[in-house]
Design a protein around this nucleic acid. Structure first.
Lengths: 206, 206
DNA sequence: AAGGCATGTATACAGTCGTAGACATAAGGC
DNA sequence: GCCTTATGTCTACGACTGTATACATGCCTT
Protein backbone atom coordinates (compact mmCIF):
# COMPACT_ATOMS: atom_id res chain seq x y z
CA UNK A 1 0.00 0.00 0.00
CA UNK A 2 2.33 2.70 1.20
CA UNK A 3 5.93 2.83 2.21
CA UNK A 4 5.54 5.58 4.72
CA UNK A 5 2.78 6.58 7.00
CA UNK A 6 1.76 3.21 8.32
CA UNK A 7 1.22 3.19 12.05
CA UNK A 8 4.45 2.28 13.72
CA UNK A 9 4.15 -0.81 15.91
CA UNK A 10 5.79 0.69 18.95
CA UNK A 11 8.19 3.37 19.82
CA UNK A 12 10.48 3.90 22.69
CA UNK A 13 9.30 6.94 24.57
CA UNK A 14 11.22 9.79 23.08
CA UNK A 15 9.71 13.22 22.89
CA UNK A 16 11.99 14.37 20.12
CA UNK A 17 11.38 11.35 17.95
CA UNK A 18 7.64 11.51 18.49
CA UNK A 19 7.54 15.18 17.70
CA UNK A 20 9.43 14.55 14.52
CA UNK A 21 7.15 11.68 13.57
CA UNK A 22 4.12 13.89 13.98
CA UNK A 23 5.81 16.60 11.99
CA UNK A 24 6.63 14.25 9.12
CA UNK A 25 3.14 12.81 9.11
CA UNK A 26 1.65 16.27 9.11
CA UNK A 27 3.91 17.40 6.31
CA UNK A 28 2.82 14.64 3.97
CA UNK A 29 -0.82 14.88 4.99
CA UNK A 30 -1.07 18.63 4.63
CA UNK A 31 0.74 18.49 1.33
CA UNK A 32 -1.55 15.84 -0.09
CA UNK A 33 -4.89 16.98 1.27
CA UNK A 34 -4.45 20.54 2.40
CA UNK A 35 -5.04 22.17 5.77
CA UNK A 36 -8.79 21.67 5.74
CA UNK A 37 -8.65 18.30 4.08
CA UNK A 38 -7.01 16.44 6.91
CA UNK A 39 -7.81 16.02 10.60
CA UNK A 40 -5.51 15.80 13.55
CA UNK A 41 -6.65 12.26 14.26
CA UNK A 42 -5.51 11.14 10.84
CA UNK A 43 -2.17 12.84 11.23
CA UNK A 44 -1.70 11.38 14.68
CA UNK A 45 -2.64 7.89 13.60
CA UNK A 46 -0.11 7.83 10.80
CA UNK A 47 2.48 9.00 13.28
CA UNK A 48 1.55 6.19 15.63
CA UNK A 49 0.17 8.37 18.40
CA UNK A 50 -3.13 9.71 19.59
CA UNK A 51 -4.61 12.97 18.49
CA UNK A 52 -4.11 14.73 21.78
CA UNK A 53 -0.37 14.37 21.59
CA UNK A 54 -0.44 16.65 18.60
CA UNK A 55 -1.94 19.39 20.68
CA UNK A 56 0.47 18.70 23.51
CA UNK A 57 3.48 19.22 21.28
CA UNK A 58 2.21 21.86 18.91
CA UNK A 59 -0.52 23.59 20.84
CA UNK A 60 -3.12 23.25 18.15
CA UNK A 61 -3.67 22.18 14.58
CA UNK A 62 -2.81 25.66 13.50
CA UNK A 63 0.42 25.59 15.44
CA UNK A 64 1.30 22.29 13.87
CA UNK A 65 0.64 23.69 10.44
CA UNK A 66 2.82 26.69 11.14
CA UNK A 67 5.71 24.46 12.07
CA UNK A 68 5.11 22.25 9.05
CA UNK A 69 5.27 25.28 6.80
CA UNK A 70 8.44 26.35 8.48
CA UNK A 71 10.27 23.08 8.00
CA UNK A 72 8.88 22.66 4.50
CA UNK A 73 10.15 26.03 3.34
CA UNK A 74 13.28 26.38 5.42
CA UNK A 75 15.80 24.29 3.50
CA UNK A 76 14.30 25.36 0.27
CA UNK A 77 16.65 25.68 -2.63
CA UNK A 78 14.24 26.41 -5.40
CA UNK A 79 16.72 25.75 -8.13
CA UNK A 80 20.44 25.88 -8.51
CA UNK A 81 22.38 28.78 -7.13
CA UNK A 82 23.74 30.12 -10.36
CA UNK A 83 21.94 33.03 -11.92
CA UNK A 84 23.30 32.42 -15.40
CA UNK A 85 21.50 29.10 -15.68
CA UNK A 86 18.60 29.97 -13.41
CA UNK A 87 15.96 30.16 -16.08
CA UNK A 88 16.91 26.91 -17.72
CA UNK A 89 17.42 25.03 -14.47
CA UNK A 90 14.21 26.30 -12.96
CA UNK A 91 12.20 25.39 -16.03
CA UNK A 92 13.68 21.94 -16.27
CA UNK A 93 13.27 21.24 -12.57
CA UNK A 94 9.70 22.47 -12.57
CA UNK A 95 8.72 20.37 -15.55
CA UNK A 96 10.37 17.31 -14.07
CA UNK A 97 8.81 17.69 -10.65
CA UNK A 98 5.34 18.27 -12.01
CA UNK A 99 5.51 15.33 -14.38
CA UNK A 100 2.46 13.08 -14.16
CA UNK A 101 4.45 10.02 -13.25
CA UNK A 102 6.37 11.85 -10.53
CA UNK A 103 4.22 11.80 -7.43
CA UNK A 104 5.98 14.50 -5.56
CA UNK A 105 5.55 16.03 -2.16
CA UNK A 106 6.50 19.57 -2.90
CA UNK A 107 6.07 22.68 -0.77
CA UNK A 108 4.17 24.25 -3.63
CA UNK A 109 1.52 21.59 -3.22
CA UNK A 110 1.33 22.44 0.45
CA UNK A 111 0.89 26.05 -0.54
CA UNK A 112 -1.76 25.43 -3.16
CA UNK A 113 -3.88 22.96 -1.24
CA UNK A 114 -3.95 24.94 1.98
CA UNK A 115 -4.28 28.45 0.63
CA UNK A 116 -8.08 28.37 0.77
CA UNK A 117 -8.06 28.57 4.54
CA UNK A 118 -7.53 32.17 5.64
CA UNK A 119 -5.34 31.37 8.63
CA UNK A 120 -3.29 28.91 6.62
CA UNK A 121 -2.91 31.52 3.93
CA UNK A 122 -1.52 33.95 6.47
CA UNK A 123 0.97 31.43 7.72
CA UNK A 124 1.95 30.58 4.18
CA UNK A 125 2.42 34.20 3.22
CA UNK A 126 4.63 34.77 6.19
CA UNK A 127 6.56 31.60 5.53
CA UNK A 128 7.14 32.21 1.85
CA UNK A 129 8.24 35.77 2.44
CA UNK A 130 10.53 34.71 5.24
CA UNK A 131 12.23 31.79 3.59
CA UNK A 132 11.79 31.32 -0.11
CA UNK A 133 11.83 34.85 -1.32
CA UNK A 134 14.87 35.77 0.66
CA UNK A 135 16.74 32.94 -0.94
CA UNK A 136 15.52 33.57 -4.43
CA UNK A 137 16.00 37.29 -4.16
CA UNK A 138 19.68 36.77 -3.57
CA UNK A 139 19.85 35.60 -7.17
CA UNK A 140 17.35 37.93 -8.74
CA UNK A 141 18.97 41.32 -8.64
CA UNK A 142 18.29 44.63 -10.23
CA UNK A 143 15.29 46.89 -10.32
CA UNK A 144 12.07 45.59 -8.78
CA UNK A 145 13.78 42.45 -7.60
CA UNK A 146 11.07 41.76 -5.06
CA UNK A 147 8.31 41.97 -7.62
CA UNK A 148 10.18 39.85 -10.10
CA UNK A 149 10.89 37.25 -7.45
CA UNK A 150 7.25 37.10 -6.50
CA UNK A 151 6.26 36.78 -10.14
CA UNK A 152 8.76 33.98 -10.43
CA UNK A 153 7.04 32.13 -7.63
CA UNK A 154 3.66 32.92 -9.11
CA UNK A 155 4.49 31.25 -12.39
CA UNK A 156 5.87 28.18 -10.65
CA UNK A 157 2.81 27.93 -8.42
CA UNK A 158 0.52 28.34 -11.40
CA UNK A 159 2.15 25.50 -13.26
CA UNK A 160 1.99 23.30 -10.19
CA UNK A 161 -1.67 24.13 -9.84
CA UNK A 162 -2.75 23.45 -13.37
CA UNK A 163 -0.56 20.45 -13.94
CA UNK A 164 -0.81 18.56 -10.67
CA UNK A 165 -3.66 19.91 -8.60
CA UNK A 166 -6.21 20.56 -11.29
CA UNK A 167 -4.69 18.00 -13.59
CA UNK A 168 -5.08 19.89 -16.83
CA UNK A 169 -4.85 17.43 -19.66
CA UNK A 170 -2.89 19.57 -22.06
CA UNK A 171 -0.24 20.32 -19.49
CA UNK A 172 -0.09 16.84 -18.06
CA UNK A 173 0.36 15.18 -21.43
CA UNK A 174 2.55 17.89 -22.86
CA UNK A 175 6.00 17.24 -24.19
CA UNK A 176 8.40 18.17 -21.40
CA UNK A 177 10.74 19.81 -23.87
CA UNK A 178 8.01 22.09 -25.13
CA UNK A 179 7.03 23.14 -21.65
CA UNK A 180 10.62 23.69 -20.64
CA UNK A 181 11.21 25.89 -23.62
CA UNK A 182 8.28 28.17 -22.95
CA UNK A 183 8.90 28.32 -19.23
CA UNK A 184 12.55 29.09 -19.76
CA UNK A 185 11.58 31.95 -22.04
CA UNK A 186 9.21 33.34 -19.45
CA UNK A 187 11.69 32.97 -16.63
CA UNK A 188 14.25 34.76 -18.75
CA UNK A 189 12.05 37.80 -19.02
CA UNK A 190 11.96 37.85 -15.21
CA UNK A 191 15.64 37.23 -14.71
CA UNK A 192 16.51 40.30 -16.71
CA UNK A 193 16.03 43.46 -14.69
CA UNK A 194 13.63 45.21 -17.03
CA UNK A 195 11.99 44.22 -20.29
CA UNK A 196 12.69 47.59 -21.85
CA UNK A 197 10.02 49.92 -20.62
CA UNK A 198 8.70 51.47 -23.77
CA UNK A 199 5.34 51.34 -22.07
CA UNK A 200 4.28 54.38 -20.18
CA UNK A 201 6.45 54.98 -17.13
CA UNK A 202 4.99 55.80 -13.75
CA UNK A 203 4.57 59.51 -14.30
CA UNK A 204 2.14 60.40 -17.01
CA UNK A 205 0.73 58.25 -19.70
CA UNK A 206 2.67 58.12 -22.92
CA UNK B 1 -29.12 41.07 8.56
CA UNK B 2 -32.43 42.82 8.03
CA UNK B 3 -34.29 44.02 11.11
CA UNK B 4 -37.02 45.60 9.06
CA UNK B 5 -40.68 44.92 9.41
CA UNK B 6 -40.48 42.02 7.05
CA UNK B 7 -37.40 40.08 8.05
CA UNK B 8 -37.63 37.90 5.00
CA UNK B 9 -39.27 39.40 1.94
CA UNK B 10 -40.67 35.94 1.38
CA UNK B 11 -40.35 35.67 -2.31
CA UNK B 12 -43.29 34.37 -4.19
CA UNK B 13 -42.94 30.68 -4.79
CA UNK B 14 -41.00 30.38 -7.98
CA UNK B 15 -38.74 27.46 -8.59
CA UNK B 16 -36.69 29.24 -11.21
CA UNK B 17 -36.08 32.32 -9.11
CA UNK B 18 -35.23 30.28 -6.05
CA UNK B 19 -32.85 28.13 -7.98
CA UNK B 20 -31.13 31.18 -9.32
CA UNK B 21 -30.91 32.75 -5.87
CA UNK B 22 -29.22 29.64 -4.53
CA UNK B 23 -26.89 29.59 -7.48
CA UNK B 24 -25.86 33.19 -6.98
CA UNK B 25 -25.35 32.71 -3.27
CA UNK B 26 -23.28 29.62 -3.91
CA UNK B 27 -21.18 31.38 -6.51
CA UNK B 28 -20.12 34.14 -4.16
CA UNK B 29 -19.68 31.79 -1.22
CA UNK B 30 -17.59 29.24 -3.08
CA UNK B 31 -15.49 31.99 -4.61
CA UNK B 32 -14.78 33.63 -1.28
CA UNK B 33 -14.30 30.58 0.93
CA UNK B 34 -13.77 27.63 -1.37
CA UNK B 35 -15.65 24.37 -1.66
CA UNK B 36 -14.62 23.06 1.74
CA UNK B 37 -14.82 26.43 3.40
CA UNK B 38 -18.54 26.89 3.14
CA UNK B 39 -21.52 24.79 4.16
CA UNK B 40 -24.82 24.31 2.46
CA UNK B 41 -26.62 25.89 5.41
CA UNK B 42 -24.68 29.10 4.93
CA UNK B 43 -25.35 29.15 1.22
CA UNK B 44 -29.02 28.47 1.74
CA UNK B 45 -29.39 31.11 4.40
CA UNK B 46 -27.92 33.85 2.21
CA UNK B 47 -30.33 32.78 -0.48
CA UNK B 48 -33.25 33.04 1.93
CA UNK B 49 -33.94 29.35 1.83
CA UNK B 50 -33.50 26.22 3.88
CA UNK B 51 -30.52 23.96 3.39
CA UNK B 52 -32.55 21.06 2.15
CA UNK B 53 -33.82 23.02 -0.79
CA UNK B 54 -30.29 23.09 -2.08
CA UNK B 55 -30.26 19.34 -2.25
CA UNK B 56 -33.68 19.28 -3.79
CA UNK B 57 -32.63 21.50 -6.66
CA UNK B 58 -29.05 20.43 -7.14
CA UNK B 59 -28.96 16.93 -5.76
CA UNK B 60 -26.05 17.54 -3.47
CA UNK B 61 -23.40 20.05 -2.54
CA UNK B 62 -21.20 18.58 -5.20
CA UNK B 63 -23.91 18.97 -7.81
CA UNK B 64 -24.40 22.56 -6.78
CA UNK B 65 -20.70 23.21 -7.11
CA UNK B 66 -20.63 21.66 -10.55
CA UNK B 67 -23.36 24.00 -11.71
CA UNK B 68 -21.66 26.96 -10.09
CA UNK B 69 -18.47 26.15 -11.95
CA UNK B 70 -20.43 25.88 -15.13
CA UNK B 71 -22.10 29.25 -14.88
CA UNK B 72 -18.94 30.89 -13.60
CA UNK B 73 -16.86 29.74 -16.53
CA UNK B 74 -19.45 29.75 -19.27
CA UNK B 75 -19.61 33.42 -20.28
CA UNK B 76 -15.92 33.77 -19.73
CA UNK B 77 -14.15 36.22 -21.94
CA UNK B 78 -10.73 36.16 -20.40
CA UNK B 79 -9.54 39.20 -22.19
CA UNK B 80 -10.35 40.99 -25.38
CA UNK B 81 -10.86 39.08 -28.53
CA UNK B 82 -8.02 40.53 -30.50
CA UNK B 83 -4.84 38.54 -30.67
CA UNK B 84 -2.65 41.51 -31.56
CA UNK B 85 -3.28 43.19 -28.24
CA UNK B 86 -3.86 40.05 -26.23
CA UNK B 87 -0.69 40.21 -24.20
CA UNK B 88 -1.09 43.80 -23.25
CA UNK B 89 -4.79 43.58 -22.54
CA UNK B 90 -4.46 40.40 -20.53
CA UNK B 91 -1.65 41.84 -18.45
CA UNK B 92 -3.49 45.06 -17.77
CA UNK B 93 -6.74 43.32 -16.93
CA UNK B 94 -5.04 40.86 -14.64
CA UNK B 95 -3.17 43.54 -12.74
CA UNK B 96 -6.31 45.62 -12.40
CA UNK B 97 -8.49 42.77 -11.20
CA UNK B 98 -5.97 41.56 -8.66
CA UNK B 99 -5.37 45.00 -7.25
CA UNK B 100 -5.55 45.10 -3.45
CA UNK B 101 -8.35 47.63 -3.36
CA UNK B 102 -10.43 45.72 -5.89
CA UNK B 103 -12.23 42.99 -4.01
CA UNK B 104 -13.24 40.94 -6.94
CA UNK B 105 -15.27 37.80 -7.35
CA UNK B 106 -13.37 36.14 -10.12
CA UNK B 107 -13.61 32.57 -11.41
CA UNK B 108 -9.90 32.21 -10.77
CA UNK B 109 -10.57 32.66 -7.08
CA UNK B 110 -13.18 29.95 -7.29
CA UNK B 111 -10.59 27.77 -8.93
CA UNK B 112 -7.83 28.47 -6.46
CA UNK B 113 -9.83 28.20 -3.29
CA UNK B 114 -11.62 24.99 -4.22
CA UNK B 115 -8.81 23.12 -5.93
CA UNK B 116 -7.73 21.40 -2.71
CA UNK B 117 -10.79 19.19 -2.72
CA UNK B 118 -10.26 16.28 -5.12
CA UNK B 119 -13.80 16.16 -6.42
CA UNK B 120 -13.91 19.91 -6.82
CA UNK B 121 -10.61 19.73 -8.67
CA UNK B 122 -12.09 17.23 -11.09
CA UNK B 123 -15.07 19.43 -11.73
CA UNK B 124 -12.84 22.43 -12.19
CA UNK B 125 -10.57 20.62 -14.58
CA UNK B 126 -13.50 19.55 -16.68
CA UNK B 127 -14.99 23.01 -16.56
CA UNK B 128 -11.85 24.87 -17.50
CA UNK B 129 -11.11 22.54 -20.35
CA UNK B 130 -14.65 22.76 -21.60
CA UNK B 131 -15.15 26.50 -21.46
CA UNK B 132 -12.15 28.70 -20.94
CA UNK B 133 -9.56 26.90 -22.95
CA UNK B 134 -11.80 26.52 -25.94
CA UNK B 135 -12.34 30.26 -25.97
CA UNK B 136 -8.74 31.19 -25.41
CA UNK B 137 -7.46 28.61 -27.85
CA UNK B 138 -9.37 30.28 -30.62
CA UNK B 139 -6.95 33.16 -30.24
CA UNK B 140 -3.79 31.28 -29.48
CA UNK B 141 -2.88 29.56 -32.68
CA UNK B 142 0.16 27.80 -33.99
CA UNK B 143 2.21 24.91 -32.73
CA UNK B 144 1.39 23.56 -29.29
CA UNK B 145 -1.54 25.89 -28.94
CA UNK B 146 -3.09 23.76 -26.21
CA UNK B 147 0.04 23.78 -24.11
CA UNK B 148 0.53 27.49 -24.57
CA UNK B 149 -3.07 28.17 -23.66
CA UNK B 150 -2.74 26.12 -20.51
CA UNK B 151 0.46 27.92 -19.60
CA UNK B 152 -1.36 31.18 -20.15
CA UNK B 153 -3.96 30.16 -17.63
CA UNK B 154 -1.27 28.91 -15.27
CA UNK B 155 0.44 32.27 -15.12
CA UNK B 156 -2.83 34.06 -14.54
CA UNK B 157 -3.80 31.65 -11.80
CA UNK B 158 -0.40 31.98 -10.19
CA UNK B 159 -0.65 35.74 -10.03
CA UNK B 160 -4.13 35.52 -8.60
CA UNK B 161 -2.89 33.11 -6.00
CA UNK B 162 0.10 35.06 -4.82
CA UNK B 163 -1.47 38.45 -5.02
CA UNK B 164 -4.96 37.86 -3.67
CA UNK B 165 -5.15 34.49 -1.97
CA UNK B 166 -1.78 34.37 -0.27
CA UNK B 167 -1.51 38.12 -0.19
CA UNK B 168 2.15 38.41 -1.00
CA UNK B 169 3.34 41.80 0.08
CA UNK B 170 5.67 42.49 -2.80
CA UNK B 171 2.99 41.74 -5.34
CA UNK B 172 0.20 43.47 -3.50
CA UNK B 173 2.12 46.68 -3.06
CA UNK B 174 3.81 46.56 -6.43
CA UNK B 175 3.52 49.30 -8.98
CA UNK B 176 0.82 48.18 -11.43
CA UNK B 177 2.84 49.44 -14.35
CA UNK B 178 5.80 47.29 -13.37
CA UNK B 179 3.69 44.21 -13.03
CA UNK B 180 1.94 44.87 -16.31
CA UNK B 181 5.22 45.24 -18.10
CA UNK B 182 6.62 41.95 -16.89
CA UNK B 183 3.39 40.08 -17.38
CA UNK B 184 3.00 41.45 -20.85
CA UNK B 185 6.49 40.27 -21.70
CA UNK B 186 5.73 36.79 -20.42
CA UNK B 187 2.42 36.61 -22.20
CA UNK B 188 4.15 37.68 -25.36
CA UNK B 189 6.45 34.67 -25.22
CA UNK B 190 3.34 32.51 -25.07
CA UNK B 191 1.46 34.32 -27.79
CA UNK B 192 4.23 33.66 -30.24
CA UNK B 193 4.09 30.13 -31.56
CA UNK B 194 7.59 29.04 -30.59
CA UNK B 195 10.43 30.71 -28.76
CA UNK B 196 13.05 29.55 -31.25
CA UNK B 197 13.33 25.84 -30.77
CA UNK B 198 16.90 24.67 -30.68
CA UNK B 199 15.47 21.24 -29.96
CA UNK B 200 14.94 19.21 -33.09
CA UNK B 201 11.27 18.45 -33.79
CA UNK B 202 11.70 14.71 -33.41
CA UNK B 203 8.04 13.85 -33.52
CA UNK B 204 6.97 16.58 -35.82
CA UNK B 205 3.34 17.48 -35.58
CA UNK B 206 1.94 20.55 -37.16
C1' DA C 1 13.98 -0.77 44.22
C1' DA C 2 10.81 3.18 44.56
C1' DG C 3 9.09 7.53 43.71
C1' DG C 4 8.46 11.32 40.38
C1' DC C 5 7.68 13.17 36.23
C1' DA C 6 7.70 13.17 31.37
C1' DT C 7 5.25 10.80 27.92
C1' DG C 8 1.16 8.84 25.95
C1' DT C 9 -3.99 7.33 26.15
C1' DA C 10 -8.98 7.45 26.89
C1' DT C 11 -13.10 9.80 27.23
C1' DA C 12 -15.97 13.41 26.42
C1' DC C 13 -17.88 17.78 24.85
C1' DA C 14 -19.77 21.09 21.98
C1' DG C 15 -19.96 22.05 17.50
C1' DT C 16 -20.48 21.45 12.24
C1' DC C 17 -21.03 18.69 8.32
C1' DG C 18 -24.10 16.72 4.40
C1' DT C 19 -28.39 14.99 3.75
C1' DA C 20 -32.46 11.72 4.41
C1' DG C 21 -37.51 11.51 5.65
C1' DA C 22 -41.67 13.44 7.24
C1' DC C 23 -44.37 17.38 7.39
C1' DA C 24 -46.39 22.13 6.05
C1' DT C 25 -47.92 25.51 2.84
C1' DA C 26 -49.14 27.91 -1.22
C1' DA C 27 -50.18 27.85 -6.16
C1' DG C 28 -52.87 26.23 -10.01
C1' DG C 29 -56.33 23.17 -12.36
C1' DC C 30 -60.95 21.45 -12.15
C1' DG D 1 -65.39 25.69 -3.99
C1' DC D 2 -61.89 21.52 -3.41
C1' DC D 3 -57.95 18.70 -4.49
C1' DT D 4 -53.48 17.84 -6.42
C1' DT D 5 -48.97 18.91 -6.46
C1' DA D 6 -45.06 21.64 -6.64
C1' DT D 7 -42.53 24.23 -3.41
C1' DG D 8 -40.44 24.96 1.01
C1' DT D 9 -39.55 23.74 6.10
C1' DC D 10 -38.54 21.00 10.30
C1' DT D 11 -36.33 17.53 12.69
C1' DA D 12 -32.96 14.43 13.12
C1' DC D 13 -29.29 11.24 12.29
C1' DG D 14 -24.72 9.57 11.99
C1' DA D 15 -20.24 10.96 11.20
C1' DC D 16 -16.75 14.03 11.83
C1' DT D 17 -14.20 18.15 13.79
C1' DG D 18 -10.68 20.36 17.29
C1' DT D 19 -9.44 20.07 21.80
C1' DA D 20 -9.98 20.15 27.07
C1' DT D 21 -9.86 17.15 31.21
C1' DA D 22 -8.73 13.13 33.51
C1' DC D 23 -6.23 9.01 33.62
C1' DA D 24 -2.49 5.49 32.62
C1' DT D 25 2.19 4.10 31.66
C1' DG D 26 7.10 3.84 31.28
C1' DC D 27 11.66 5.90 31.74
C1' DC D 28 15.01 8.11 34.72
C1' DT D 29 16.87 9.54 38.97
C1' DT D 30 17.61 8.76 43.62
Amino acid sequence: MSHDGEPTPRRRRDAGMTREAILRSALTAFTRFGYDGVGVREIAQKAGVTAMLVNRYFGSKEGLFAEVVDVALAPRTVVGDDLSTLSRDAAAALVAKTAPEAESLDPFLLLLRSAANPRAAEILREGTQRHVERHLKSMVTGAHDAERTALFLSVIAGVWLMRKVIGNTALAEADPAVLSRHLEAMFQTLAEPAPDARTAPTAGDG
